[in-house]
């Protein structure tokens, strides 16, 4: 799923709305301060302490705004398959030949490993230095299902550039379905606090063309001169 695209749309719209509200409220506030200075009032601008029709109208307006924002939130969550809380393949109704490629990702204190079902290829690292970060290789252009779990405490799999995050629990598998439209390599981080070296738990996700991916799964290494 295109988490980044959905994020940019929804967040972008919300930022505009929020900016509008902020400017309006701050404007009214500053307006009150400035008018007050200018006129050095000797009596109140208005004496009423309530105005029920106005208050109720405003409440109805707020209800409408809330309804719109709830719709925005829910419909986009559905575009993301409810954040994959439901069985992924079932939800997306993918054609049989297009079943996602599964990658088993396991978090542990304090790094990540990945395994590829039906193959002996594994990826791991120590995360102690940038050079020791594991590189999780995935195919470009086909749906990938990350099956996330943990060996010890709760961690979280986060790729900031792709705007996607999911927690990794012990004794539980979370799935995350996404497609990588382009080849490339992105930095990932652990975003759920997990102990002393939480800060170092960085990794990479690398999308390569399907043929190179096949070679990687079979041999455990990317062919020389693989796309980056």
């Amino acid at each position: 799923m295109d988490y980044r695209g959905v994020f940019d749309q929804v967040f972008g719209l919300q930022v505009w709305i929020a900016a509008g509200v902020f400017v309006l409220v701050t404007g009214l506030l500053l307006g009150a301060l400035v008018l007050n200075r200018a006129r050095r009032r000797d009596k109140l601008p208005f004496a009423a302490a309530e105005h029920n029709p106005l208050e109720i109208t405003f409440a109805v307006f707020l209800g409408g705004a809330a309804a719109f924002l709830v719709w925005l939130s829910l419909s986009n969550n559905h575009r993301l398959d409810y954040g994959d809380t439901l069985a992924v393949a079932h939800q997306t109704g993918l054609a049989p030949g297009r079943q996602p490629v599964r990658v088993d990702v396991t978090a542990f204190q304090w790094c990540w490993s990945a395994a590829y079902p039906g193959s002996t290829t594994t990826v791991s690292g120590s995360c102690a230095t940038p050079a020791a970060r594991p590189v999780i290789v995935v195919p470009q252009g086909v749906p990938v299902e990350f099956a996330l779990t943990s060996r010890d405490v709760v961690h979280a799999f986060w790729v900031p550039d792709l705007a996607v995050k999911r927690d990794a629990y012990p004794d539980h598998v979370n799935t995350l379905l996404m497609t990588f439209p382009e080849t490339g390599q992105w930095l990932g981080r652990c975003s759920e606090y997990c102990g002393t070296y939480h800060k170092d738990m960085d990794f990479y996700v690398r999308a390569v063309p399907p043929a190179q991916y096949q070679a990687f799964v079979q041999t455990g290494a990317l062919p020389a001169g693989a796309a980056t």
Binding site: Y3, V6, F7, V10, F11, Q14, V15, A18, L69, L72, S73, N76, N77, R79, L80, G83, A156, W158, P160, A163, V164, K165, R166, S191, E192, Y193
Partner: peptide, 16 residues
Amino acid sequence: GIMIATPAVDYQVTDS
């Protein structure tokens, strides 16, 4: 707060 009450946004910004 409204932004992070929206899951599609929260998936990116939570725990950041």
